Every structure is written in C-alpha cells, then in structure tokens.
Simulated scan of single mutants.
Amino acid sequence: MAKTTQVEYRVYDGADALSRAAAEHFLEAAQAAVNSRGKARLAFSGGNTPKRTFELLANPAERFLKAMPWEQLEIYFVDERNVPPDDKDSNYRMTRESLLEKAPIKPEHVFRIEGELEPELAAARYETKIRSQFRLEGAEAPRFDVLALGMGDDGHTASIFPHTAAIHELGRIAVANHVPQKDTWRITLTWPVIVEAHEVFFLIGGKDKADPLDRVLLGPYDPETLPSQLIQPKNGKLLLLLDRDAASLLPAPDANGRGTLEITR
C-alpha cells in the first residue's frame, strides 16, 4: 500500500543560519516533549552542521543554555563508527566536546554506542540499553521524541549506506552494518525504528547534497541506491532544514523560505 508523506522544507542563508535554526528547533521540540510526556528523548547524528548546532546550544552567551530543559533530556545516538569514544572520528566524542561537557546534562541520561567493541556486540548492547530505557522488551519499537538525521552525498542516512544489509533489517532496533565502500563497520539505528519517532528531521547543508536530495525526494523510488528514501515517518510528516545550496534543485520556497512537497510511495 502506498504511503503519503507531507514534506516541509525550510531554507536558510548559510551554515550559521542553518545551525541556529536547528538549535531553535531542538529547543522547541524538547520543550514540547517535556510538556507532553515529562521528558524528551533526543537521538543525535554526527557531522559538521550538528557540531555547530551543539556549540550554540551550549554557549552561555546564547539563550538556549538557560531555556533547554536539560534535566529532563535523555540523549541517544543515531549511529556510530567502530572506534573508541576518544577517537577523532567518534560521533560521541564530537557531541561530548561540543555539548555534553558544557551543558548540565545528567551523565546517566547519555546513552552512547560502544563503538570500541566488536560491532555485533556493540549493536546488541545498544539495543538492550534502549529496550531497558523504553521498557520495550517484547514491544515492536521505541519512539524517540526527536530524531535528527543527516544525509550523505551518496544518499545514505544514519549509517544505512547504499547496497548494505541494514537496508533490509526489519526486526532489530540497532545493527552492525558493514560498509564495503568505506571498508569499515558502523553501528546504526534501523530505519523501522527511525520512522517511529514522534518527530524526524533532516539537517542538510552544502552544494554536494543538492543532487542527491533532489533524487531522494523527487526521483524514482530506489532505496537500495538511495537509503534516505526509507525515511517515511509513521506520523506522515517529515521536516527538512536546509541551506540554499542543498535546496537549490528543489521547487523554490516562498518568501519566508518555506516549501512543501507531498510524496506518495
């Protein structure tokens, strides 16, 4: 059965404006989740744009540090490289240095992927952590409150890369995914879990993302080649925060930098 997704995209001028918009969105979404459910479970991705966003959230000169309900946050990770937590390529290290060490987040509310372990073991331990926190033994999937994604120039998202096994995983929460094109292993949340989130949004910047983004949204459905096409949230809504370079091939936004698409697949 075909599914229709309402896509909203918001376009900003440059990396700084995009990062600030993402920080504002994290704040609003976290506050809404805390008001509704008493806590906010956030799942972060890595990358340069999230790093700038995290630095804004933790900057004492900005309003976010005082406004964010830090004590009610639980922090999770969408994916991780198969590296130790102090490695320069670790998503956890980037998040720790840019946000976790500077904001009043309870250490016991941060749930990292143990990338230093054998990949299958790291994925299994991460899944167990999530099930325990969500009390989901036997349940179908957790529901994160806010889940932020990036997108690669090859159309991948999380660590679900083209032509890799994670594309076809339907039953697990987290898996080890071998990525031959990078000759490495990654640990990633699976797409059936990602689409369960109360809110899913992509944060995408750069000229190299314009063509894959256009193909993901407006091209033929081919998730084996473009795994980002798998992200069709169960709530039927998908938000994209973009800079002008990334959005350059999409239908022009309105005067407020907003655009919408309806995608049925």
Rank of each mutant, 00 (worst) to 15 (best):
Q232H: 11
A124R: 15
I105L: 15
Q31P: 06
E71M: 08
D87Y: 00
L242D: 00
L238T: 09
E116W: 13
P180S: 01
G138D: 11
N235F: 07
V7R: 07
K207V: 10
P104I: 08
A58E: 09
P253L: 07
A15I: 12
S132I: 08
R143G: 10
H109F: 01
G219I: 07
P180A: 02
V7N: 05
L249P: 14
S19Y: 02
L27T: 10
K182G: 11
I130P: 03
L250Q: 07
E140D: 13
P104N: 13
S132N: 15
W191A: 15
D87C: 00
W185T: 02
D79A: 00
S90N: 01
S248F: 08
L147G: 05
E127Q: 13
L203A: 03
E55F: 03
V193G: 06
E224G: 10
D145Y: 05
A103R: 03
A40N: 04
E8D: 15
R186M: 00
A32L: 10
L242T: 01
I113W: 00
A32E: 12
Q181N: 12
R172G: 09
K39A: 12
E137C: 05
T260K: 14
M1A: 13
Q133L: 12
E71Y: 06
Q181D: 11
R244W: 05
K66P: 09
K106N: 15
E55G: 09
P192V: 04
G138I: 11
T184K: 03
W191L: 08
Q72T: 04
E108I: 10
R81I: 01
Y12H: 15
N82E: 01
T53K: 02
A139N: 13
L136D: 15
I194S: 04
I105P: 11
H156L: 05
S45Q: 01
L121M: 07
R63I: 13
T5F: 06
W185I: 00
N91T: 08
D79Q: 00
A32G: 10
T128F: 11
G115P: 01
A174Y: 03
I231N: 06
E114Y: 00
A166P: 09
V193M: 08
I160W: 04
D214K: 15
R112P: 09
G47W: 00
G138P: 12
T53Y: 00
D154F: 03
S159T: 03
K66Y: 12
N35C: 11
V146E: 06
G236Y: 01
A32D: 12
E114H: 08
H178A: 04
S98M: 11
D243H: 06
A43M: 10
I194M: 10
V83K: 01
E137A: 15
T190Q: 03
L261V: 05
K234P: 06
V195E: 06
K3P: 02
R112I: 04
F144L: 02
L73V: 07
N91C: 06
T157N: 05
P212I: 04
T128P: 08
